[in-house]
């Protein structure tokens, strides 16, 4: 548990900044809803008439006039991108930062096995992501209450659940990548997160690119689909969990025999 505690303490500032930023932006969005609700008819037409751009964000199938329709697009983008970036960044630096900051020599000359180091670091990563999602969900529910709307429990839980899974998947994959890196890795994390996001936009635009949803975790986070079907796409999620597991297995495989220079 020593390494878990150390990681949580060490990553506290980054964690708080990301969590606060995402929660703050979500709250602003929610507070804006009553304002825009009146203008929604005009807005809905506007958003509905932008062709494939509309489709990319799923706005052709969502009703902006309802809180949950608005929430799925606006808040979905904030939580989706913000959460994805945080999870990727935290994951991709988790193992490699020790070598980048030259602290690996300190850590690994203590009587701890590499397996334990990787395991505790992974645990710290998961705890951070879980805590972030719980805090954000709490603020989101609070804000919905404050603007006097009823909480659409099922949809909110499904949306947030999907984004939680997305973050876990990206974190797992990036954790795997982390074991192979020695130097700065932030670029890899941000790049991967952004790429996945855009892959989903492409997949939304044309049916020919639908298969991309099996690659990007944003595929199962599509607000329009979740609201329409009232459940998550198990196929996409199963594939996503597989990617995460491969990432984590690769991390263990590599890290246990990695040379520390």
């Amino acid at each position: 548990m020593t390494i878990v505690k150390h990681e949580l303490r060490h990553g506290k500032t980054t964690f708080l900044i990301w969590t606060a930023t995402i929660a703050f932006l979500l709250m602003i969005c929610i507070f804006l809803f009553p304002e825009i609700q009146g203008d929604m008819d005009a807005m809905g037409e506007l958003f509905g008439s932008m062709g494939s751009f509309t489709a990319a964000f799923g706005m052709d199938r969502l009703n902006f006039g309802t809180l949950i329709g608005f929430y799925a697009v606006e808040c979905g983008n904030i939580l989706g991108l913000g959460g994805a970036f945080f999870a990727s960044l935290a994951g991709v630096s988790m193992l490699s930062k020790e070598e980048k900051d030259k602290t690996a020599e300190f850590l690994l000359t203590h009587p701890v096995s590499r397996t334990r180091v990787a395991g505790e670091k992974l645990a710290a990563l998961l705890i951070q992501i879980a805590a972030m999602n719980l805090i954000i969900l709490a603020f989101s529910l609070l804000s919905i209450g404050m603007i006097g709307e009823d909480v659409p429990w099922k949809e909110i839980i499904l949306l947030h659940g999907a984004y939680f899974l997305l973050q876990l998947e990206l974190a797992g994959v990036c954790f795997g990548i982390s074991a192979f890196l020695r130097r700065g890795s932030a670029g890899v994390g941000i790049g991967l997160g952004a790429m996945m996001y855009f892959l989903n936009l492409i997949a939304n635009m044309t049916d020919h690119a639908k298969f991309l949803k099996y690659i990007t975790p944003f595929g199962y986070c599509e607000g329009a689909d979740i609201l329409a079907e009232g459940r998550l796409h198990t196929g996409y999620i199963a594939v996503g969990i597989m990617y995460a597991c491969i990432g984590i297995a690769a991390a263990y495989w590599r890290y246990t025999k990695k040379e520390i220079h």
């Binding site: 060490h10 602290t103 000359t109």
Partner: peptide, 11 residues
């Protein structure tokens, strides 16, 4: 073990 180059966790 005392390494030749010492680096610790910042903060």
């Amino acid at each position: 073990y005392l390494p030749s180059e010492v680096s610790f966790y910042p903060g």
